[in-house]
């Protein structure tokens, strides 16, 4: 069975998704504060790796990376409500790219599977 990553069109689709997703995140007051002081170019590369992972594409993320990468944000108050907002924007991005509801649910499930690592629980 093909992965959503392949069905969406692989790397090229992820490139397109990164811009849509990152624009949603940066304009959402609930979460934009967490992205204020990061270098945008660096951040876009990270978003791409993240989206590739949640779309079921090849990735090298480990739970440890997720924990380390978000530790400083948890200290600044990152909690479930923020993860919910990100999952919501993932869904919105996928909808714009023409994915169906079951694909969106699949992506949300992958994103939720790293929730505890992200929140350092």
């Amino acid at each position: 069975m093909s992965t959503l990553y392949e069905r969406l069109g692989g790397g090229a689709a992820v490139d397109q998704a990164v811009d849509i997703f990152y624009r949603k995140v940066l304009t959402d007051e609930r979460v934009s504060g967490f992205f204020d002081d990061v270098d945008m170019e660096h951040q876009a590369a990270k978003q791409k790796a993240f989206l590739t992972m949640v779309f079921g594409g090849p990735n090298s993320y480990t739970g440890m990376d997720m924990r380390e990468g978000h530790k400083h944000l948890v200290a600044r108050g990152l909690d479930d409500s923020h993860v919910d907002a990100i999952v919501e924007h993932l869904g919105g991005t996928l909808k714009e790219l023409g994915a169906d509801d079951s694909d969106i649910a699949e992506v949300a499930a992958i994103a939720n599977s790293v929730r505890d690592d992200v929140l350092n629980r």
Partner: peptide, 20 residues
Amino acid sequence: VNTLRKQCFLAGAGSNAIHA
């Protein structure tokens, strides 16, 4: 430059089309 980069991106320029 950082402020402008974000502003241009949010104004619709693709992240791959911004050079700094």
